[in-house]
Write a protein that binds this DNA or RNA. Structure first.
Lengths: 358, 358
DNA sequence: TCACCTTGCAGAAACGTACCTTCCTCCGAG
DNA sequence: CTCGGAGGAAGGTACGTTTCTGCAAGGTGA
């Protein structure tokens, strides 16, 4: 007696296809997956029947059987109360987009997960590996994942001795040093820094690079720090920085909104940019191309980082690389605009047309 | 003979926990899931053993058995070449963040998926339901999902007769009408529109609302449209709009970057904002609070939309609502700043301190 | 004492797929 | 005539859960 008949409702299973095509389950599986030794006639016949029945293999069953889910976790460390905070909006959006594209191109999908240690969510989804953005020192989630044998690749050099499968990062120190040199070349005598008071690697490396540069050129460090996840605090800190008695004549802002914050603060103090104050900030946002004046930005190349992270992770999942951790450094890109050039009297980015009523 | 012993490697399964605790598999399952009739002693003992062995239930097996994966798809319609494009950056980022938070709070995780009809990715992941952003008329992916019995909730009123489980949207027409009235109140005599040439519902509704408003007040429509996914095209279109012989004295820009684009164009033509040109744009970005001058923006409340969409979807998944489609309208929020106020000589947003050298 | 309920737990059947193993058949070479 | 081998397809098990059903032991009222 065949109990395979009489599926009351719900989707067609592989059994139904087998029955309808008059072959065995094995043959259906082989035909659809391109395995086994089957004549083309059988293969196409099975495919046709499957198509007609609207058959879709059960992802859960396949995952259970093969041990591969085709899912990659994407985690952002959380700052405030929300289980999921993006600082550096544009950076994250760009990075996530690139990572998604790269994953999809290789047949994987991305799952957004919180970086908290609430196991209930993590263990409810079968992951083949995980991308972690800016993991904290000795992050318990990462440690746990690695202990269970899951590949983990991080965006940002992992702090401490986090045993990740690989990481991708910029050379933040070199970027900051180069940028400060650029400002000094443009005539800056005292360069200030707007930085965060968080302990993530990006903030730490950038700040120490700044301090070292100051030591090297014999300048007293002039900086203000604030909680980077609070947008209002950024404006306040920018104001504080320009209110100091030892007011800098150039400022680098570590975070995306710092450019507009500093610009607004400069206006309040009657400082002209770039004449009285040179400005650079780290951002992926295109708005800085059309501010008045356009602001020089440091791009961390999130697209390249997102792509690279996913490639490394999938290579590890599929056992392509050797077992050793992969470490990759992506160069940054300083997009020089008016705000950091004292020589050039007019904008360097070309307006769409040139009908300016000058 | 017990074949449950001797697990060579890999994670501990429920069998191992049962063996180690000296109970049956059923008891372990019941103890960990809070079901069955077990004395607290047994329950805690099993939990302790499971903890000691580092036991994590297999998500794949659970999904296979229960038919629920705890995963929700998140899809954005694609515009250009990339499999995944975000127009309206900040809108999407905010919406996705809210949706993620809301989903996590109810024990679900979000999977980012492409809106293409490439089945191989979709069928490789077990979804309980899907959120679709701005689905096109008769979207094949949505149709397919619904046909398979999966709940689908859309951000944006679905075009055509898409049989979705529910949708959430703003009242775009009311928003545009209200905003145009606001500009007229501020003294605008000829209001222009910067719009897109795509066919999505948002663009279509907003544009027709604009045209109807013009008819009502007896103004000739003055608008330029451009492909919204191309950032450069926006700047060009803004320029075109202000170069027209029938130059408007107020402009509403439908897309996020339009504010800076229009501001830049105005500067090129020597137009002062708001004295010569009133400006409003639709954006979620906070940069418009600190531009010179600050720009009035229309917020579509992506946080509320993202949250609402997920709540409706999960209610449908868990069979909480009645079977009927849920339709929810979220009010928009006009954040009035200097750019649309001719009366107010100074900024209305309060600077952090007041040391401005005025 | 018997019937009956409650408590505490175990057995075993699914869930839907992939794949290892086996089996049959046909054909040509020895 | 036999034997080896290859092509073609089916059988059956395992993946790791959840959960339905059932069984024994102990308690209780008649």
């Amino acid at each position: 007696m065949s109990r395979s008949t009489g599926r009351r409702l719900g989707r067609a299973g592989i059994r139904d296809v087998a029955a309808a095509a008059g072959v065995s389950i094995t043959t259906v599986s082989d035909a659809l997956n391109g395995k086994g030794r089957l004549p083309d006639a059988t293969r196409s016949h099975v495919r046709e029947v499957a198509e007609r029945l609207g058959y879709r293999p059960s992802a859960a069953a396949r995952t259970l059987r093969t041990g591969k889910s085709g899912l990659i976790g994407l985690t952002v460390t959380t700052y405030g109360d929300e289980p999921f905070t993006f600082t550096e909006f544009a950076y994250f959006a760009e990075m996530a987009r690139a990572a998604t594209s790269a994953a999809l191109a290789r047949g994987y999908a991305l799952v957004i997960l919180p970086a908290t240690s609430r196991h209930d969510v993590w263990s409810n989804v079968a992951l083949d590996g995980t991308v972690v953005i800016d993991p904290a020192d000795g992050d318990p989630v990462v440690t746990e994942l690695v202990r269970h044998g899951l590949p983990v690749v991080s965006d940002g050099r992992p702090g401490g001795t986090l045993p990740v499968t690989g990481w991708v990062d910029n050379d933040h120190e070199a970027a900051v040093l180069g940028l400060l040199d650029h400002l000094a070349d443009a005539g800056a005598r005292r360069i200030g820094l707007l930085t965060g008071n968080t302990t993530d690697t990006y903030t730490r490396l950038s700040t120490t690079a700044y301090i070292r540069w100051c030591e090297r050129v014999g300048q007293d460090p002039v900086y203000e720090s604030y909680p980077a996840h609070d947008p209002c605090a950024g404006a306040v800190a920018a104001d504080r920085l320009l209110a100091r008695p030892d007011r800098p004549d150039a400022v680098y802002g570590l975070f995306d909104p710092n450019g507009t914050d500093l610009l607004a603060a400069a206006r309040r103090y009657g400082l002209r940019v770039p004449d009285d104050l040179l400005l650079v900030c780290c951002s992926e946002s295109t708005v800085y191309a059309t501010t008045e004046p356009p602001i020089t930005t440091l791009s961390l190349k999130p697209r390249r980082i997102g792509t690279a992270v996913v490639q490394i992770l999938i290579d590890a999942i599929e056992g392509l690389g050797d077992g050793r951790p992969v470490e990759q450094v992506i160069p940054t890109d300083l997009i020089v605009r008016t705000s950091s050039q004292r020589r050039s009297p007019r904008t360097t980015v070309s307006p769409p047309r040139g009908p300016a009523g000058d």
